[in-house]
Design a binder for these strands. Structure first.
Lengths: 133, 133
DNA sequence: TCTTGACTTGGAGTTAACTATAGATTATAA
DNA sequence: TTATAATCTATAGTTAACTCCAAGTCAAGA
């Protein structure tokens, strides 16, 4: 039922060094160990890893994730604090989503120009909105 | 018509150190100077800055931006190479957009739970899809 | 002209997030 | 049991992208 560090790392496509690092800095809670000291990841531990990896992929800082974990372990009196933290992070991601959208649109435009250009041999811009390259 | 480094930096909300750094590593082409050696930014230079800042905000690496500028300055024989570079970067941004979307949705779910929780005083998960926190 | 403030270069320092190394211990398979 | 593979800790190193600093030069107003 429970998994080794290697198995968890394969599941989430990260390295054992990274996973131990996440535990050390509190991005995930401390995991259970065998009598010999080897880490074992049960369902709950894997849930925390999933959460950490998902947040990191979107660009949430390890510091914010660790803060959430810290608050979580303090119990029910931190519900509001956790809500505030998550709301703040969501705001950041929504802003990032806007930036991303704008840049993808700019790239779409440029790429369409280049697709023309590689056929005609000439690159021509519309020179709209301060764009010159 | 042309702008000082300070004016350009205010326009794009970056620091002069960053702008000089961008020029030094080729993220923007070298800009014109006054006889005394002070940088002046004309329309075209500002277009390049705009481009760099936009790409950086979306997470495109300075290396990729500099490579594009390098190819651009080599002329028409690099049209295909520039198209390939831009296409590759767009792919990365589209993938990032997916990650961002997934994480925002997860956050939306969590936040809705926490909004309930701060009223009821109890936090309860649906425990779907490996989520445990 | 003087002085105050903006600008210059070259290089060093910082921060976040890993990533690698060494040397010891534990686990697994023949 | 013995070799081989996986894991452990502690700590140092790396990378990307700035960011700061010193010491000198340039520009604009009184």
């Amino acid at each position: 039922m429970s998994m080794s560090i290697k198995e968890v790392c394969e599941k989430f496509d990260i390295t054992p060094d990274t996973l131990r690092y996440y535990e050390r800095i509190g991005v995930i809670p401390e995991v259970e160990r065998t009598p010999g000291g080897t880490r074992r990841y049960d369902e709950e531990a894997i849930g925390w890893v999933n959460n950490a990896v998902c947040m990191r992929k979107a660009g949430v800082s390890v510091e914010a994730i660790a803060e959430y974990v810290r608050l979580y372990r303090m119990g029910d009196e931190t519900l509001q604090a956790r809500l505030d933290l998550l709301s703040g992070e969501r705001e950041k991601l929504l802003r990032q989503q806007e930036e991303l959208k704008a840049t993808i649109e700019l790239l779409n435009y440029k790429i369409s120009r280049y697709e023309e250009a590689v056929i005609t041999g000439v690159l021509s811009w519309d020179k709209k909105e301060g764009e010159t390259e």
